[in-house]
Design a protein around this nucleic acid. Sequence first.
DNA 1: GATGAATGAGAATTCATTCAT
DNA 2: GATGAATGAATTCTCATTCAT
Lengths: 189, 189, 189, 189
Amino acid sequence: MARPLSEEKREAILTSAAKLVATLSTGAPTAGIAKGAGLSEGTLFNYFANKDELLNQLYLEIKADLGKALLTAYPSNADIRSQSLHVWDSFVEWGAKYPMKRKAMRQLSVSERIREENKRQGAAAFSDINRMLEKSIAAGALKGRSSAFVGAIFEAVAETTLEFIARDPKERERYKQSGFEFFWNGISG
Amino acid sequence: MARPLSEEKREAILTSAAKLVATLSTGAPTAGIAKGAGLSEGTLFNYFANKDELLNQLYLEIKADLGKALLTAYPSNADIRSQSLHVWDSFVEWGAKYPMKRKAMRQLSVSERIREENKRQGAAAFSDINRMLEKSIAAGALKGRSSAFVGAIFEAVAETTLEFIARDPKERERYKQSGFEFFWNGISG
Amino acid sequence: MARPLSEEKREAILTSAAKLVATLSTGAPTAGIAKGAGLSEGTLFNYFANKDELLNQLYLEIKADLGKALLTAYPSNADIRSQSLHVWDSFVEWGAKYPMKRKAMRQLSVSERIREENKRQGAAAFSDINRMLEKSIAAGALKGRSSAFVGAIFEAVAETTLEFIARDPKERERYKQSGFEFFWNGISG
Amino acid sequence: MARPLSEEKREAILTSAAKLVATLSTGAPTAGIAKGAGLSEGTLFNYFANKDELLNQLYLEIKADLGKALLTAYPSNADIRSQSLHVWDSFVEWGAKYPMKRKAMRQLSVSERIREENKRQGAAAFSDINRMLEKSIAAGALKGRSSAFVGAIFEAVAETTLEFIARDPKERERYKQSGFEFFWNGISG
DNA sequence: GATGAATGAGAATTCATTCAT
DNA sequence: GATGAATGAATTCTCATTCAT
């Protein structure tokens, strides 16, 4: 074997893509992505068959990355509010730490170029969390609604919170707390 | 000037633009938009100086349209929960009635091509509503947060609700109610 | 209407394409073809939806052009040998007069990019001639063979003749005569 | 030098090249050719300095292969018609047996990428045959024409015959006979 | 004012070839 | 010798915008 495809370069491409997609959405030029990864235009296509593939992989990787972050140090034995709070805090921390990934995810979530099957697979990374959230509301406002809906609401509220943190970083803790309190009140009502 | 520009054609362009932007985002070709409006490519630029202008105007019109819908039959003298419920229901009805506008708005909200000043102006259409919501939470979870934040949370939750209604239209009433209950619990907690 | 697509420019593109296809086959770059026609790259695609369309149209036009040349001043009432000779001479004259068209036709005849339906349609321009040839051989070597086969044989022999004329133009008349005599002997045997 | 280049692999490359060139002409990608030969992209260039070299070698090998086929079991002492018939039948059998080589040869014959010197050398494999044919026509239609011309006519007619056999294989024998009869009448007239 | 042909700057790919492993 | 990742020039096609009609 001459040289294996370098995992490092693959990551560099995805990182560069996240950065450009964050602002330019799916219109981000592949040439720019490659350059941002320190590679030449053609090399990108050794790693991803075409731009759609790159965008879809980017989406999946970001979703998986976020999913993993939410489960790190997850307090399985704590009460449900604590579990929810952990997930909330992890989400907000992740978003503040990786603003490009967060923005790219937002762009891609809305794009027609992400295949339906990948949207489902992306959501699957959160199914455990969604189920946990769902349990927490056996008696609340969202009682009877699917865990997907509860999860989507959670994400929407967290996203909005992150957006405002990004605009006004020094209020981070306050937004984080208010956001969660809102969410928790909402579902446990 | 001989004839004034036809308001009818301008609207046709915006309607066509909404439809295409809904799926293609800002990548929607101006030629396609013009064609969808029954006009030829060049004519579009008699009505909008360039594509950015068109996108920005589209954003503003949709926001204004939604803002107007929310205030129609607004029960100024009812209690705050009723006022909120009215706004909520109006939002959801509007979104279900104009799915293209809703999707286009979602795409544009995320786009860098909408000028910051227009995002602000778009938000301004909701300032009264936001202030009303804010008042309703003098003591709740979002106490002390800006009315912009409360409004954004409201919009995010409503958007998510509309998304799920779009996927499963026969559950519309249930989603609508659950969504509002969640929101109301959240802020009044 | 702003300006109609100019038939003149369309012809210029086809002429330029013939010239480049003659030597570069279907690998001829569209940019070069456009430039050769005195137009900019993009303009070519106002006249032909894509390169395949251009190549297919080129093929059809050349075939039609040749077909027309063969029928000009056609001696319908002469004996069959005279009719055949007329077609033969017309073919050779045409090929000598339009060497680029002839070479381009040769390249395209062999290309997979010409759609089967167009190959058929191209052949249709010669069906009358083929039938005439077929009649002339009611008793010869090709008796019972399809008129398409007879026509193809005719074309192959004429092509070869043209090839040698191109290499050695001053022997033109001799090649022309020998070629026809060969063909006529062949079918009338 | 450690190991000599493997003749087997060289042949595998040429065989794969013939298959791809048959349909894609000189546009056939070297990567695809290598893959078809069970080798990796780079290895091809250990056997052929560059693509042009490969195409030229392919042309020469096919011509040589055909030339050899035509001379196998050649009836040197038979009369000229029998000799011609032998060559004709061998040609048609060869073409039916190696359709990829035949088609590849057809593509390459028309390509500018085959160097003139190789076209000459390819033709040289047939010089004996051409001379034989030429002798047979001391008094016929092609009297006085070069043996190259006679050979080219022969090839053109045989090619056309093969083309029709390929389209309608069950008529093979009939086409084969008609084709030869046409040719023989043509030159002996 | 309306039209749509003309433009040319991108954009995504493809591909022959090199060379480190 | 074999491999296949890396390269970047070349290619097809798209599209916002202009302007002659």
